[in-house]
Simulated assay, not measured.
Amino acid sequence: MAKRDFYDILGVSKGSSADEIKKAYRKLAIKYHPDKNPGDKEAEDKFKEAAEAYEVLSNPEKKQRYDQFGHAGASQGGYGGGGHMNMDDIFSQFGDIFGGGGSPFDSFFGGGGQQGGRSRVSRGSNLRIKVKLNLEEIAKGAEKKIKVNKLVACRTCDGTGAKDRSSVQTCRTCGGAGSVRRVTNTILGQMQTSSTCPTCNGSGSQITAKCDSCHGEGVVRGEETITINIPAGVSEGMQLSMSGKGNAAPNGGIAGDLIILIEEIPHETLQREGNNVVYDLHISFIDAALGASVEVPTIDGKAKIKIEPGTQGGKILRLKGKGVPEVNSYHRGDQLVYVNIWTPKAISKDEREMLEKLQGSPNFKPQPGRNEKSFFERMKEYFE
């Protein structure tokens, strides 16, 4: 089933501010929260759907890609876009949305609901890399294997940061909940509030003996070879995201994302204009007058085209479907061949005599306006 529009899910418009988007998500998160709707599968699905929409629209980079390419831009090639969110990801947002350590229902339900008492999950930072692609790779898509220097989970302790399993114990302060609750008396009665446990910083556990390799951090500096499948049709400056391929998080948390910035390597003879490819063809005025068959380079290799007799300089020939495809689409642009008449600068005595004889012929005198259109008129007709 096709995904719903993220703006429709949150009930906001494209021009809505960040505060308006956050307010709309907060309202839906409270309405469909699992603690408020225990056992309601439909409410849980709407809760996750709203979280996915907010995860994209609250991020300026992901929002820009979504506005330009829709769901294909938010999750190109299966990267990012909220598609890999789980409940841990969703509840990790609540520190920013509700200004506290977790669910907005913790204080009302005492942590006894479905998600109550959840310990905080740490998250690794994102990584950014640049990938250079030539025009052929952009047109056909590419698989790149890149070595990335980043923080990886410590192999000695499996990312726990502890010397051994017995060194990891439940936090005595919060009992493993990751948060502590406090009851205060007010004029309205007793109010219960929740805050991050100061002893374990929300992890719910304590380490009594640290790992010798990572010194209790759970991560070390390392190198990982990552395979990146880049879809056809990407362009200069476009960003792709691979969920969970960024820096590893301390103490076995959720890894950050890998952000891939696309750079185009200029082609020797072809120029890209959107999804179209442009080639400047230079022919002699003899070939232009008599007609000829010439070869031109394309993304797919050489192609033969026919120059009709009497072809004028500035004429645009079109090779349909020889351009660059749209991202995640079957549509492909064209190759535009601009015809330029090449005039020799140096000619022999015999050649000069032949040209002088032709110079007086009326067929070799320019006759502007006779069945000819300007360059700009031809361009307008092409794009219409």
Rank of each mutant, 00 (worst) to 15 (best):
residue 195 S to R: 12
residue 171 C to A: 07
residue 156 T to E: 14
residue 167 S to C: 11
residue 189 G to R: 12
residue 189 G to T: 14
residue 152 V to Y: 07
residue 201 N to R: 09
residue 206 Q to I: 09
residue 160 T to W: 05
residue 156 T to P: 00
residue 210 K to G: 00
residue 181 R to C: 06
residue 167 S to N: 08
residue 186 T to L: 09
residue 200 C to T: 04
residue 201 N to G: 02
residue 165 R to M: 08
residue 155 R to H: 12
residue 172 R to V: 05
residue 155 R to M: 08
residue 183 V to N: 11
residue 189 G to K: 11
residue 157 C to E: 09
residue 172 R to S: 14
residue 154 C to S: 04
residue 163 K to G: 03
residue 182 R to A: 12
residue 209 A to N: 11
residue 187 I to Y: 10
residue 195 S to I: 06
residue 209 A to W: 00
residue 172 R to T: 14
residue 208 T to V: 08
residue 170 T to C: 02
residue 208 T to G: 01
residue 153 A to K: 06
residue 154 C to E: 02
residue 191 M to Q: 14
residue 193 T to W: 06
residue 176 G to Y: 04
residue 176 G to T: 06
residue 191 M to Y: 03
residue 197 C to K: 06
residue 158 D to G: 03
residue 188 L to H: 10
residue 192 Q to I: 11
residue 160 T to G: 02
residue 178 G to L: 04
residue 169 Q to V: 15
residue 186 T to C: 10
residue 170 T to P: 04
residue 163 K to R: 14
residue 190 Q to W: 05
residue 184 T to W: 02
residue 210 K to L: 07
residue 186 T to F: 10
residue 160 T to Q: 10
residue 192 Q to T: 15
residue 197 C to W: 03
residue 178 G to R: 02
residue 173 T to C: 09
residue 161 G to H: 04
residue 205 S to R: 09
residue 197 C to E: 09
residue 201 N to P: 00
residue 164 D to S: 11
residue 177 A to F: 07
residue 194 S to P: 01
residue 175 G to F: 12
residue 203 S to C: 03
residue 198 P to D: 12
residue 205 S to E: 11
residue 202 G to N: 00
residue 162 A to T: 06
residue 162 A to R: 06
residue 165 R to T: 06
residue 186 T to K: 10
residue 186 T to Y: 07
residue 185 N to R: 10
residue 174 C to F: 08
residue 165 R to Q: 07
residue 185 N to G: 04
residue 154 C to Y: 03
residue 207 I to W: 03
residue 206 Q to C: 03
residue 202 G to H: 02
residue 172 R to I: 09
residue 202 G to P: 04
residue 192 Q to E: 15
residue 206 Q to E: 13
residue 183 V to K: 13
residue 199 T to I: 04
residue 170 T to V: 13
residue 203 S to P: 00
residue 177 A to H: 06
residue 187 I to Q: 12
residue 210 K to W: 00
residue 171 C to K: 07
residue 195 S to E: 15
residue 198 P to E: 12
residue 183 V to S: 15
residue 199 T to V: 08
residue 183 V to M: 10
residue 202 G to L: 03
residue 188 L to E: 14
residue 180 V to F: 12
residue 182 R to Y: 15
residue 208 T to I: 10
residue 182 R to V: 14
residue 194 S to Q: 09
residue 181 R to Y: 11
residue 202 G to F: 07
residue 192 Q to N: 11
residue 205 S to G: 02
residue 195 S to T: 15
residue 189 G to S: 13
